[in-house]
């Protein structure tokens, strides 16, 4: 069985990360931004797992780290969506460029 080389996995995760970063900085929809952030966090998870699989490093540490990342990503999404909901109730919008009470 041939395995995917580490470089390819790292290129994939870096691409995934920057796609997420691009989405987070250019999207107007707040839910879209939250999804882009999840993509960035998943790129981190891919990184950890591929290092643990391919290199001579502790697999347990990497897997524990990934589990914690997943849990805190869920918590961030919960808090983030709750805040988006509150903002929607107050300002009737979920587009970041229409939220502009606090400026200069």
């Amino acid at each position: 069985m041939t395995t995917v080389p580490l470089q390819h996995l790292l290129i994939f995760s870096t691409l995934l990360f920057f796609i997420g970063l691009y989405g987070a900085t250019t999207r107007r929809n707040m839910v879209g931004i939250l999804i882009s952030i999840e993509i960035m966090l998943n790129a981190v998870n891919v990184n950890f797992i591929s290092f643990a699989r391919m290199l001579d490093v502790s697999a347990t540490v990497a897997q524990v780290f990934v589990i914690f990342t997943i849990v805190l990503a869920a918590a961030t999404a919960a808090v983030g969506l709750a805040i988006v909901l509150v903002l929607y109730r107050n300002q009737k919008t979920i587009y970041t460029d229409e939220v502009e009470l606090l400026k200069w």
């Binding site: 987070a24 707040m30 931004i33 939250l34 952030i37 961030t76 808090v79 983030g80 805040i83 988006v84 509150v86 903002l87 107050n90 300002q91 970041t96 939220v99 009470l101 606090l102």
Partner: peptide, 8 residues
């Protein structure tokens, strides 16, 4: 609005 900017 402040909370939203902070969280993002």
């Amino acid at each position: 609005e402040a909370a939203l900017k902070y969280v993002l």
